[in-house]
């Protein structure tokens, strides 16, 4: 018995040492992708609890499209080309597990779920930063924004919490050693930038194409590690007091196809817009 356990322990030491040496000899990228759960894009939006909460009944949840199509797929491509690993991290409860399994099926190496209900961006970003602090990720990939909150806040906040550079709204990334070159959308155009060392990015259209998981991916996703960690104690700085639906548009005024001048008159005299 004792001998057995000593051998197991020795073996695991040897494994760890080997991994350490190989990581040292052969540079392996270690990427993190922040993946959030979002209501399907066709969901009917309604609220309950006197307008305080999004009504999830009958709503299908998906991986937030920016996180899936752009951040996750590009991270997987980089690792396929250069070696390394892609870990996903999600702040959420167990209802997130199906979308996390999908991320694994698309090609992530392993997944971490920080077990907390997301409340505001400060809380989500602090939790992700606390987890990432000691993990030594080379690049932290996020989506541009979640399609429910549309904040575009979490990635910049993770960067600030960790003291890292942040490249916002990137449409492409190429990595060579510790140097990354990106194209990012800015007012009136795009910037081509280079960052040395670890940083955070938010990804948008252009980065990569959507990938449909294949059967092998789906099968292997079942046995890939999905580790659930407890949430550290962080405060939230804001909360939604009330959700409201926009006023319903009145009926559309139809103008005859031959009468473009009438449309122009309406736009000028009624809508006073031109």
């Amino acid at each position: 018995m004792i001998i057995d356990s000593i051998i197991t322990r020795l073996n695991s030491y040897i494994c760890i040492t080997e991994k350490y040496i190989s990581d040292y000899l052969f540079y392996r990228m270690k990427l993190l992708v922040c993946v959030s759960k979002a209501p399907d894009t066709t969901s009917r939006i309604s609220f309950t609890d006197g307008g305080k909460r999004f009504d999830e009944s009958g709503v299908q949840f998906i991986i937030n499209p920016y996180d899936e199509w752009y951040a996750l797929v590009r991270a997987i491509e980089l690792v396929e080309a250069n070696g390394g690993s892609v870990t996903t991290v999600t702040v959420g409860d167990a209802t997130c597990d199906p979308i996390i399994r999908k991320a694994l099926a698309i090609g992530a190496t392993d997944a971490v779920r920080i077990d907390a209900i997301p409340t505001d961006s400060v809380q989500v970003a602090s939790l992700i930063a606390n987890y990432s602090k000691n993990e030594g990720f080379d690049i932290i990939f996020c989506g541009k924004e979640t399609i429910d909150h549309n904040s575009c806040a979490v990635p910049a906040m993770i960067a600030e919490c960790m003291g890292l550079p942040y490249v916002a709204i990137a449409t492409s990334i190429e990595v060579s050693g510790s140097e990354s070159t990106l194209v990012a959308e800015v007012s009136g155009g795009t910037n081509n930038v280079t960052v040395n060392g670890p940083f955070v990015l938010s990804a948008t259209k252009g980065m990569s194409e959507q990938r449909i998981p294949n059967m092998r991916g789906i099968m292997s996703a079942r046995s890939k590690p999905l580790i659930v960690v407890d949430a550290s104690d962080v405060s939230k700085m804001s909360e939604v007091n009330e959700f409201k639906l926009p006023p319903v548009k009145g009926d559309c005024v139809l103008v005859d196809a031959d009468n473009a001048a009438e449309l122009v008159r309406l736009l000028r005299e009624e809508a006073k817009i031109i």
Partner: peptide, 18 residues
């Protein structure tokens, strides 16, 4: 895009709500 990139950082550094 510039505001969206910088403002959340300020929220963290000022311990503010965003």
């Amino acid at each position: 895009n510039e505001g969206k990139a910088a403002a959340p950082r300020v929220a963290i550094s000022m311990n503010a709500g965003y």
